[in-house]
């Protein structure tokens, strides 16, 4: 039969009192066995810190970059009595109980029997307390969040510490920094057309962002490599996210380029690719040669 801890304590105290009363009566020749039960002390989650890749405490982290979360916990039955520490990271649009997803939710767990595991965990950066016989210990969770982890200042970090009977929790907030990636499948472009006509070509732009961005473009002057008096001015170039000859105009109209940045796609987010159509007004007359200059496609936070 198992007794709850308080009952055991009551029985123990009763035994001690009975012994104290009976002993003087019986004399000192009788031994009374006393069994000591150590009561469970609940674990405490003392602090939680987000540490960047160079070891500084930080309020925001970069997606796709290693960082650590340090949980300091205490258990007066020694740190070895702590059976589990769980960390849940979630974005403002998510909740503690949501399903894990690279964009919004991560669950990581340390258990005394199984060590560290969970989504976003970088096992090589995880560390248990070196001394589990002390009352207090620091558990280090190595973490790397996906690039698509939503950019926001309001991510929650919730740590729960459990022993066999009780638990404690602590929470903090941190930010996920904006991330944007853009790449092109071409390093140069070729046009073919008659002088005085408009020629078109396209390049594929892949993007990967965790926040809304706009896509812009600008151009320098392109100068002939053989006969430098022949040039193409930025205004000779037009870009668009659709080919007006093959599909109806979508989003913004064509952007006539200049040396200053203009926007031709208003709002994209997540991962994907767009076909960028480039139109050039071929001069008349013009000289058949290579032209050198720079077309810049950029991605910028909205």
């Amino acid at each position: 039969m198992q007794y709850p801890p308080r009952t055991i304590v009551a029985m123990l105290i009763s035994a001690i009192i009975a012994g104290a009363v009976i002993l003087p009566v019986l004399g000192s020749g009788i031994e009374i066995p006393i069994v000591a039960y150590i009561l469970n002390a609940g674990p405490e989650a003392i602090s939680i810190s987000v540490i960047d890749d160079v070891g500084h405490e930080t309020s925001s982290v970069d997606p796709g970059v290693d960082f650590t979360i340090e949980v300091v916990s205490r258990d007066n039955n020694t740190a070895a009595d702590i059976l589990m520490i769980q960390i849940i990271l979630f974005a403002p649009g998510s909740s503690e109980s949501s399903v894990d997803s690279p964009a919004e939710h991560y669950t990581m767990t340390w258990t005394s029997s199984g060590g560290f595991q969970g989504s976003g965990l970088e096992a090589q950066d995880c560390q248990e307390p070196p001394d589990m016989d002390g009352a207090e210990g620091t558990w280090v969770f190595g973490v790397r969040l996906a690039r698509e982890a939503v950019a926001s200042a309001g991510w929650s970090c919730l740590a729960t510490v459990e022993d066999e009977a009780e638990s404690d929790r602590i929470t903090t907030t941190f930010g996920i920094n904006e991330f944007a990636s853009a790449s092109l499948d071409s390093a140069s472009i070729n046009f073919a057309g008659d002088p005085g006509s408009e020629a078109m070509t396209s390049v594929t732009m892949r993007y990967d962002t965790n926040h809304p961005v706009e896509v812009g473009a600008r151009s320098s002057e392109f100068v002939g490599t053989e006969v430098t008096s022949f040039t193409l001015q930025p205004g000779d170039f037009t870009v668009d996210d659709d080919s007006s000859s093959s599909s109806p105009e979508t989003g913004r109209p064509k952007l006539v380029l200049s040396e200053s940045r203009g926007i031709f796609i208003d709002d994209i987010q997540g991962s994907g690719q767009v076909e960028v159509y480039i139109f050039v007004s071929i001069p008349d007359p013009f000289y058949d040669q290579d032209y050198q200059g720079k077309l810049v496609f950029d991605v910028r936070s909205r």
Partner: peptide, 17 residues
């Protein structure tokens, strides 16, 4: 007369698989 305009000294290397 149809002519080719190349906007760089580098060959186009776009490839797909």
């Amino acid at each position: 007369m149809r002519k080719m305009l190349t906007l760089l000294l580098v060959t186009v290397l776009a490839c797909s698989l």
